[in-house]
């Protein structure tokens, strides 16, 4: 047995995480959740004051700005109401709480099943009893068929006199889901054994790996931590912001299939969460970073970026961009010159 900690927390850990009623985001601890709520949902858009609850914000808007608050900002469409008093995890209605847990559990097992399918690792306690690792190996018949198709294509092109040999083989060697895969397997970069057995007919050149292809890189630390976000639907993974080192590019062997078992359509709540997650702003990113234990300044890429940021703040004054910057000619004068408005005095 190797290390038990694999970056996939178990279901109890995930269920224990505090989460935000308004946007379904979950957090490492209650303090982070509360600061998130104050920043995203209970912040006054007039003066930036952060209140503790939606009710508090409503009173503030009323008294200070003489305006009425009609909904909670950045909330899911069905969670914008002001009637429910939420503070941290307090005040979440029972049915919503259960719904959330159910969703987490479902997501967890889906993700787990996917992982197993992708890695081929059996579930704990079942040695080798799990589903076989899904590697698509072409049977000789399939290979032959493909070759025939390819030859036919080349032949027709030759007949047509077109020198488009290059154009003829593009889709052949690439997995259709490459890059666009919503849930790239964690062991990306794993090289499959060549599908062609010795003596098999030669494949089109697109089948070979790019020269620069690394033989089998291990996933960088950041990639693992990206999967550390439990129970989040894969499509909703937070945008790989400044905090995450860039993931290595994924290469699939031409014969391999896209990762199996990905649930086709996430439930509506999932979609909503995914939408909300994409809107993540600086504060949320900071919170996320704190959760992952990534400190700015750890690792090469983030340090550079943080340094750059500081610099830009320093010369912020110089860094301003004026919407209208002509210091001699007024906007009206420019508009007056447009053919639409120009007035020609008749002699």
């Amino acid at each position: 047995m190797g290390k038990k900690k694999r970056g996939h927390p178990d279901i109890e850990e995930i269920l224990a995480r505090p989460w935000c009623y308004y946007c379904e985001r979950d957090f490492e601890d209650l303090k982070l959740l509360i600061s998130h709520q104050k920043a995203k949902h209970f912040k006054c858009d007039r003066c930036g004051k952060r209140l503790n609850t939606a009710g508090g914000l409503s009173v503030h808007m009323n008294q200070v700005h003489k305006e009425s608050l009609d909904k909670v900002e950045n909330a899911l469409p069905n969670r914008q109401g002001l009637e429910i008093e939420i503070f941290g995890m307090e005040g979440v209605p029972e049915d919503v709480l259960q719904q959330h847990q159910q969703r987490i559990i479902t997501n967890f097992y889906t993700a787990q099943a996917e992982r197993r399918a992708a890695t081929g690792n059996p579930p704990p306690g079942q040695n080798g009893q799990g589903p076989a690792k899904k590697i698509k190996i072409e049977t000789p018949e399939e290979i032959k068929r493909r070759l025939a198709v390819h030859r036919a294509k080349v032949a027709t092109q030759k007949a047509a006199g077109a020198n488009g040999a290059v154009a003829s083989m593009p889709a052949d060697g690439q997995s259709p889901a490459q890059g666009a895969s919503p849930f790239p397997p964690p062991q990306a970069g794993f090289s499959y054994p060549p599908a062609g057995a010795p003596g098999a007919p030669p494949f089109p050149p697109a089948q070979t790996y790019p020269a620069a292809f690394p033989p089998g890189p291990s996933p960088p630390p950041g990639a693992a931590s990206a999967f550390n976000l439990p129970a989040r639907p894969p499509s909703g993974a937070p945008p790989a912001g400044a905090a995450l080192p860039q993931r290595p590019p994924y290469f699939y062997n031409g014969a391999s299939a896209p990762p199996p078992g990905y649930p086709g359509s996430p439930s509506t709540v999932d979609e909503l969460v995914a939408g909300a997650a994409r809107q993540g702003d600086d504060i949320d990113q900071l919170i996320r970073m704190a959760e992952k234990g990534i400190k700015p300044g750890k690792g090469a890429a983030p340090t550079e970026e943080a340094g750059g940021e500081k610099k830009s703040k320093k010369d912020k004054e110089k860094n301003m961009r004026m919407v209208y910057a002509d210091t001699e000619v007024s906007p009206e004068e420019k508009m007056a010159l447009l053919p639409k408005y120009r007035f020609a005095i008749e002699a």
Binding site: D282, E309, S312, K313, K316, K318, N319, M320, R321, M322, V323, Y324, P331
Partner: peptide, 17 residues
């Protein structure tokens, strides 16, 4: 009448007349 520009556009302020 200024707005902070998004960091990915280089930060700083967008300044309006």
């Amino acid at each position: 009448h200024r707005q902070a520009a998004p960091e990915d556009e280089g930060g700083g302020d967008i300044v309006y007349p």
